[in-house]
Write a protein that binds this DNA or RNA. Structure first.
Length: 269
DNA sequence: GTGTCATGCGTAT
DNA sequence: TACGCCTGACACG
C-alpha cells in the first residue's frame, strides 16, 4: 500500500530496528547484487523518507535509493523467522536481530549525493516532513499557477505535493469539498490551505496506524475512530454506485490522466 | 489456468 | 496517449 504514509512508516520502523547496526546485505534475486555487495558488512547509519522515496545511508557513504512503485513490499521480521526469502527478493538486509526483505520495487539502486539532491529537488512539499523552507501552501500555489489541468491530476504530481497517491487524492478532495475536475488555477487559497492541512492530518494518521482511514466516526455511525470497520474507512475510493456517507448521493467514478477517481457530485461542487 | 486490475512512475511516440 | 517495469489478489471458466 505504498502512498507516502507507508514510506514514512517504513523508515520509522526500520530505523528503530536496523539503524546503527552493521548489516549483511545481499540480493537473492541477483538484480541488485553489485549494489548490495557495496554495503555488505557496513553499518546502516540512517534511513530517511521524502515523499514516496527512501534513502538508506551507510557508514561508508554509500546511499541506496528505494522506490516501491505500485508493487513493492517490505517485510521486516525479528530473527529467527519462519518467513521464507522469496525468489524475487531484490534486497535482503540482515542484522543480528532482524531481517528486512524487499521485493518488487520500481527502484533499488546505489546513488550519490547529487542524485539524492536531484530527486529531492523535484519533489513538492511533503505533508509528513515537519520543516519546510518555504510556506508549503505557497509552494503548491506557485506550482499550480496558470495550470489548466484538473486539480485531481495536479495533486498526483509529486512536484506539487509529495506523497499523495490515488486513495488519498480521492479522499482529500472529498473532505475539502472540491470537484476533482476543477482547473488547478481556479482553486483558491483557502481550498489550497485546506488541502494541505487535511493532507498533514490524514497522512499522519495513516503513518501511525499503517492504514488509510479518512472517515469521521460520526459519518459511519461510530463514536470512536478505533471502532471504524474496514468497509467504513473511506468516503469515495472504489465506492462507485454506493451512497455518499454524508448526503446519500451516488458516488461517481471517471478517469483522470489514466487513473480512476471517485467523488460525490453533491459534496464536491 | 488465464485474464484483469491495482495505493506508481519514467520514457517514448 | 501508450507502453514497460515490477508482483499479487481476485474473478472467471
Amino acid at each position: 500500500m505504498p502512498e507516502g504514509h507507508t514510506i514514512h512508516r517504513a523508515a520509522r520502523l526500520q530505523n528503530k530496528r536496523l539503524r546503527g547496526r552493521p548489516v549483511q546485505s545481499e540480493s537473492p534475486q541477483g538484480r541488485f547484487a553489485s549494489g548490495a555487495s557495496l554495503v555488505d558488512g557496513i553499518e546502516l547509519a540512517k534511513i530517511s523518507a521524502n515523499g514516496k522515496h527512501l534513502f538508506y545511508e551507510f557508514a561508508n557513504d554509500v546511499i541506496v535509493h528505494v522506490h516501491l512503485g505500485l508493487f513493492g513490499k517490505f517485510r521486516l521480521r525479528s530473527l529467527p523467522t519462519e518467513d521464507p526469502v522469496s525468489e524475487n527478493c531484490r534486497w535482503l538486509v540482515t542484522t543480528a536481530n532482524d531481517r528486512l526483505h524487499l521485493a518488487g520495487p520500481t527502484a533499488c539502486e546505489v546513488v550519490d549525493g547529487e542524485q539524492v539532491d536531484a530527486i529531492r529537488s523535484r519533489l513538492g512539499p511533503d505533508p509528513l516532513v515537519k520543516r519546510h523552507r518555504r510556506d508549503p501552501v505557497e509552494t503548491m500555489a506557485s506550482r499550480l499557477h496558470r495550470r489548466t489541468i484538473p486539480i485531481g491530476a495536479a495533486i498526483l504530481d509529486q512536484k506539487v505535493i509529495a506523497g499523495l497517491g490515488n486513495v488519498y487524492r480521492a479522499e482529500i478532495l472529498y473532505r475539502i469539498g472540491l470537484d476533482p475536475f476543477t482547473p488547478a488555477r481556479e482553486v483558491d487559497q483557502s481550498k489550497l490551505h485546506a488541502l494541505w492541512t487535511e493532507s498533514v492530518r490524514l497522512l499522519r494518521l495513516g503513518e501511525r496506524s499503517g492504514r488509510i482511514v479518512t472517515t469521521d466516526p460520526a459519518d459511519v455511525g461510530r463514536t470512536r475512530r478505533s471502532n471504524i470497520k474496514a468497509q467504513e474507512r473511506l468516503y469515495c475510493y472504489k465506492r462507485q454506485g454506493e451512497p455518499c456517507r454524508r448526503c446519500g448521493s451516488i458516488i461517481r467514478t471517471a478517469d483522470i490522466d489514466g487513473r480512476n477517481i471517485w467523488w460525490c457530485p453533491a459534496e464536491q461542487s
